[in-house]
Every structure is written in structure tokens, then in C-alpha cells.
């Protein structure tokens, strides 16, 4: 969770094991299909937010095109299974590959610029993919969307209801979380953070800034594609709206509210988002106003996201007990030198 790995030699593995165990028994506590469905949505958003977090949190670039890659993955797997009859299980890695291919081409073009230009360029690429999906009726059925997408299955085990899908996505979330953890403590991950904090300095130390960023971007888009494919086979209907600005905003809100640049942050953010989305269903259009206010409020008052509240509390707690506080109060959520 923290970007550094020292400290808590015993407490951390125990806490992680406890957390995973709690997540594993959650569907049994949920009690009804509706809550189980919400758990699946939580995990799906957590997966997508973790992938977006690689770009926003670790590379320090704001992308507005992420939902488009989710859509590319969803459409790839949906088209392969409905039109070519390919088993969805094969479609899943293919969706990741195709999304990564798009990510490679788009990232190769867009990562030449940074900051606001990059954000706007990804917005443009996202809008192009949306427009094509919306108008290429022969392939994607346009605004009508693709219906009757078959559910995923491994042999006799069909992921046609919420509970098995939950475990599938949970496994992917844990795998992605572990990958992010391994990445951040690896040489490549440190290169990511160095590029985020100060690109010219990183370049002067022999880090290839462009390749480092491209690698992170492609990894993020591949995971987004897989997440999109699972979504398509779970909900079983997709429309071009999956690529829309609405979804982009939702994913950014999840990452920022939870806490960018951390692993627990996006998972927590997804929980808050899905929880509020459902509990505020009666509020109608007011919901998005609340989310927008939350986003703006978090950016202004709590730049580290909700997760930083806990870190703050823990640091305060430690200094009370005269233990040495962890050196990183906020794990450098601000982009550092600028």
C-alpha cells in the first residue's frame, strides 16, 4: 500500500491476509443477489481504477481516454464471442491484447506531450474511438449496442451469476494489486516514480522517460481491456456509452477520492463510489453533482485521498507511542518539484 516497503515486518502480511480473507467471505455475508451484484461492480471498478492508477498515480499523467480502452476490451471480447462464437475465456486475453495494441499506438503518439496537452490528446483519442464505435454499425451495431453476450465459463464452471464472477474479478484485483506492488518496489517502478517526480532529472540519470511512460501506459490499457471484457460478459449488454465521458469521469473520481499512487486507494475509492452510487439512487441527477463536489473537495482539501486519512492517523498514533514515524507522511501524491 505504501510506496516504500520498510517497516511493519510482521503486521503487514497479517493485515493483508486478513483483508483477503474478509474479501473472500463477503459474498456469504451479503445475503442477497442485489448486494452480491454490487460487490461485483465494486471489484470491477477497483480493477479498472487500479489500472488507471498506474497512469495517474505512478506516471503522474492525467489520461481522459481510459474508458475507451475499457470499451475496446469489452467490444473485442463481445464481438469475438457473439459473431465468431469464440469461447469468452479466450476472448479475455485477446481483449487485453487488443486494448494493449491500441494503447501502444495511442500512447506512442500521445506520450510525446505531457501535462495538459497529454490529457487533451487522450480525450481526443477517446472521442475518436467512441465516434467510430458509435458509427461503425456493421461491426459494433452502433448505438443499439451488442446484446446476448454469452457469460464466461471455465469448463463446467459458468460465471453467469454474481458470486462466481465476484471471485473471478477479486482474483484479478488481487493479482493486479500484487503486480502494482511488485512494480513499485522494482527497478522499473522506481523509474516510474522518478519520471513522475522530475522527468528531466530522471532522464539525466539514464532513464528513458518515453519508454518508461509507454510501458506503464500499455500495461494500464491491457488491464483496462480485460476489465472491460469481464464487464461485457457479466452484464451481457454493451453500448458505446461504456466509452463515454461519463465513465472517464467516474474512473478518475474513484482513483482521486480513494488516493492516487497507492494500491488500497483505488479499491477503497471504488467501494465509496459504488456505495454512494447505489445509496443515492433516489437523488437522481443530484448524484453526479455530489460526486463532482467530492472530486473537487478531495483535490483541494485532501490531495492524498481517503487513504491518506488513515496514514495521517497512523503517523500521529506512532508519534504518541514514541515510535519512529514512517518517513513518508503523504506518499508524495503531489507531483513534487515544479
Amino acid at each position: 500500500m505504501n510506496t516504500n516497503s520498510h517497516g511493519q515486518s510482521l503486521g503487514q502480511p497479517l493485515a493483508i491476509a486478513g483483508g483477503v480473507a474478509a474479501l473472500a467471505v463477503l459474498p456469504f455475508l451479503a445475503g442477497n443477489a442485489y448486494l452480491e451484484h454490487l460487490l461485483v461492480l465494486w471489484m470491477l471498478y477497483a480493477l479498472l481504477a487500479l489500472s488507471l492508477n498506474i497512469v495517474i498515480g505512478y506516471l503522474g499523467e492525467l489520461t481522459f481516454g481510459h474508458a475507451a480502452f475499457v470499451g475496446v476490451g469489452a467490444y473485442t471480447s463481445a464481438i469475438l464471442s457473439t459473431q465468431l462464437g469464440l469461447p469468452p475465456l479466450l476472448g479475455l486475453p485477446l481483449a487485453g491484447l487488443v486494448a494493449a495494441g491500441f494503447g501502444l499506438v495511442i500512447g506512442y503518439a500521445a506520450l510525446r506531450v505531457v501535462g495538459p496537452q497529454f490529457a487533451i490528446l487522450t480525450l481526443g483519442f477517446g472521442a475518436i474511438l467512441f465516434t467510430i464505435t458509435n458509427h461503425w454499425v456493421d461491426l459494433t451495431r452502433g448505438p443499439m449496442g451488442i446484446t446476448d453476450i454469452p457469460p464466461m465459463a471455465i469448463g463446467p464452471l459458468a460465471f453467469d451469476s454474481a458470486r462466481p464472477t465476484y471471485y473471478l474479478v477479486l482474483a484479478l484485483v488481487l493479482a493486479t494489486a500484487y503486480l502494482c506492488h511488485a512494480l513499485v518496489s522494482s527497478r522499473t517502478g522506481r523509474a516510474f516514480l522518478a519520471v513522475r517526480e522530475n522527468a528531466p532529472l530522471a532522464a539525466s540519470l539514464g532513464i528513458n522517460v518515453f519508454h518508461t511512460k509507454l510501458m506503464g501506459f500499455v500495461a494500464a490499457t491491457a488491464i483496462a481491456g480485460i476489465g472491460g471484457a469481464i464487464y461485457a460478459h457479466y452484464i451481457r449488454v454493451i453500448t458505446p456509452d461504456i466509452m463515454g465521458v461519463h465513465n472517464v469521469a467516474a474512473l478518475i473520481i474513484v482513483v482521486i477520492i480513494g488516493g492516487r499512487g497507492t494500491i488500497l486507494g483505488p479499491i477503497l475509492g471504488a467501494l465509496v463510489y459504488i456505495g454512494l452510487l447505489e445509496s443515492l439512487r433516489v437523488a437522481g441527477p443530484l448524484r453526479m453533482v455530489i460526486f463532482a463536489a467530492l472530486l473537487t473537495g478531495t483535490v483541494v482539501f485532501l490531495p492524498g485521498g481517503l487513504i491518506s486519512l488513515w496514514q495521517r492517523w497512523r503517523n500521529a498514533h506512532k508519534s504518541e507511542n514514541n515510535l519512529p514515524a514512517t518517513p513518508t507522511g503523504l506518499p508524495s501524491t503531489e507531483g513534487g518539484a515544479k
Partner: peptide
């Protein structure tokens, strides 16, 4: 940082 400003304008 410009990232913060971008995000807050998106929120607005």
C-alpha cells in the same frame, strides 16, 4: 501543481 489545477477544473 498543474495536475491539481487540471483535476479541480474537471471537478468544477
Amino acid at each position: 501543481h498543474e495536475f491539481t489545477i487540471l483535476l479541480s477544473s474537471l471537478g468544477l
